[in-house]
Design a protein around this nucleic acid. Structure first.
Lengths: 146, 146
DNA sequence: ATGGTTGCAAACACTTTGCACATGA
DNA sequence: TCATGTGCAAAGTGTTTGCAACCAT
């Protein structure tokens, strides 16, 4: 039994969450698995096109929404006025966004004040601002049963 | 000289950055000065309406963009697919966003890992996720003169 | 076969823009 | 007065939805 797990297609992952393995979905899973940054819908469409898979924006939005709903992906917004998507199965990390070229890098530790200085030094990324938000359920809402 | 600084109108602030003090702008400055959370454009329009100032969305967007450009306000996005605005002249702080009721609270210290636990305890806010992004100029872009 | 998926068109929310008219300094 | 600001209409993104045709299981 050699080569047991090379080049898996993503059928299992998809079927595992009760999603049918269509060409677009398989290709997008591959894209997300091999890309090191959150991907937006336009990029996904271009990618599919290059692979000869023609897909309507509505379809791609439906796919990523479904992925996110099923827990395969995470939806994030980097102050761009649009969403990006990345695999949910990643360890906690943050992003460095260049406001000039739009480049996005991952960073994986965290300690914000200290980090900001480290970033300047190590990554030579000139931090002009950062954004930190917490999402969850407030005290009041936790009390409500609804 | 009693009561030197009660109930300032915002004319000075506006003129100070070369903006004319129109009714809508004055009212919005007041709103931003008296509100403890970032405000979105719809809220601004409702507020103006209540004050008897009818304003077109286009105008409000132009106002907040102008404010932000002049450094009076800061534009933020809390993963809602729209922008909010808050006074720029605030000390560094972050936000707690309730994904259930949309409530937004400010927090002013930061130390993310530790903070997340503290939030649960002190604020009784159940953190389900947080978002941290840094914005700035990447190494490559710093090198480019353009 | 049949229920999940897709394409297409339409609609929606948020935001920007052009231009003529109005107004603050 | 006159540059700046506003209203209105139109247009531009990003995203969602309804419905009929399609295809993975």
């Amino acid at each position: 039994m050699v080569n047991v797990k090379i080049q898996h297609d993503c059928k299992d992952e998809l079927n595992g969450v009760e999603l049918r393995a269509t060409p677009a979905r398989i290709a997008l899973m591959h894209l997300l698995e091999t890309t090191d940054r959150p991907v937006d819908v336009q990029t996904m469409i271009s990618f599919l096109e290059k692979k000869g898979i023609q897909a309507d924006p509505a379809t791609v939005f439906r796919i990523v929404n479904m992925f996110t709903e099923k827990g395969l992906t995470k939806q994030i917004q980097l102050q761009e006025g649009k969403s990006r998507y990345e695999l949910a199965a990643q360890n906690d990390h943050h992003h460095l966004v260049c406001t000039k070229c739009g480049d996005i890098q991952d960073i994986s530790d965290c300690n914000i004040e200290v980090l900001e200085k480290e970033i300047s030094l190590k990554k030579k990324f000139r931090v002009t601002s950062h954004s930190l938000e917490f999402f969850g359920i407030c005290n009041d809402c936790q009390k409500k049963t609804s």
